[in-house]
Write a protein that binds this DNA or RNA. Structure first.
Lengths: 125, 125
DNA sequence: TAGTTAATGCAACATTGTTGCAAAAGTAAT
DNA sequence: ATTACTTTTGCAACAATGTTGCATTAACTA
């Protein structure tokens, strides 16, 4: 019966992501924490927050992995929304209300969606 | 006036990607070439093929970069199609005819699309 | 065929992410 | 508060992927 434990690192990282309006990369989190904990610990905390359904991962168009709070997953866990990736300020935002529609060929079974739109955000355009 | 040169490595890599029905990663290309050229040369050839508009890059949901032939870009260069990423056989396919529709909030200016659907392909489902 | 310069190979390095293990810290029972 | 148990952490080492500088090789041009 393993039970999760509340640690300083986990609390700080969770608050950081939840209070951020944009998705954060590992290196961005590391900079914000200023040596509060080890690189490896950040990876492990993010892993736990993923399992708990608190955050979700986004692979940006440049390959950088960003972590974002699941603020629309309270009822049921789903990530069928579009992510916007600003090419100027490099910020990745979850557009929670934008759900795309499309028609797939037969026999393709979709399990998730991973939609990212590069471009210019309202602040940069 | 710098002009591109036809080399064995470039010809081989280009033919490999064009003849493949699925997108190929750097390591997959390297294995196929069996020591024909250096790792670094593969990166540089891919860079040139990108600039020439022969191929395009796809960042898969697991972060692996795949390279695919632009076979629908002959007239105008666009990649507004969906990519399918099979979770079983790990193959990434361009679904050239599938163009999604969606409504963005105001002031967002989209320059590209990067849509990938993880799931099971016809062969694996 | 000789000269020019693009392309290559090699070494070194940076970044990102993973794993094993001993030490530290959180939790629950006494 | 102290103890015992187990999760979490820090550290070191490693792997994969991608980049850069520089000397050498090879493709094109005249």
């Amino acid at each position: 019966m393993k039970s999760a434990r509340t640690t300083t690192a986990k609390t700080e990282i969770q608050e950081l992501i939840i209070s951020s309006s944009v998705a954060l990369s590992h290196s961005e989190i590391q900079k914000s924490l200023e040596g509060l904990c080890d690189r490896v610990s950040i990876y492990r905390v993010l892993e736990r927050l993923m399992e708990e359904g608190v955050i979700h991962k986004i692979v940006n168009v440049d390959g950088v992995v960003k972590n974002a709070w699941c603020h629309s997953c309270s009822a049921k866990h789903c990530h069928n929304h579009i992510h916007f990736s600003c090419q100027k300020c490099k910020v990745v935002t979850c557009l929670d209300n934008v759900e795309p529609s499309f028609k797939l060929p037969k026999n393709y079974k979709v399990s998730e969606m991973n939609f990212t739109l590069p471009g210019l955000c309202p602040q940069c355009s």
